[in-house]
Amino acid sequence: MLKKTRFYIATLVIGILLLASSFVVHAMTEGFKSLEGVLLGVGAGLIGMSIANLVMKYYERKRPNFKKQNEIEFNDERNAQIRYRAQAKAGSILVWLLIAFIYLLILLDVPLWVTLVGVGVFSSYYILMMIFMNKYRKEM
């Protein structure tokens, strides 16, 4: 999506804060390895994404034609249709993969709550689909 520079500056700051807090957790506590890993991973991911997008924004500011072309490509109705169809297709395939994964979890004899979380995610797909179908029925 085409977001504003301020959004990416905010995500960069959040990423730096998360990264810093992972070092604080590492230095000051013991036995919080997983929390440390999550903070480090999410922080690094946000920093990478923000820098890449900020560089793109800088490039767009230097070359207004490039920005205009990018906006046209993004808003182009055929491109938007292709994007939505691809997202819908990928979502449908993901549901089938999730079903296979849930069966794999059952075969691996994992704790029941893990399987139930998988079933919950699977169910949420259909719940969200119903919510959005209802929303778009009212809008269209």
Binding site: I72, E77, R78, N79
Partner: peptide, 26 residues
């Protein structure tokens, strides 16, 4: 034509060769 209509060049190509039907606005 693509620049004038604010669509991508590929969209014009697809319209011309019949792979894509435009929205009513386009």
């Amino acid at each position: 034509l693509a620049a004038a209509l604010e669509v991508s060049r590929q969209t014009i190509g697809s319209l011309e060769n019949g792979r894509y039907n435009p929205s009513i606005i386009l």
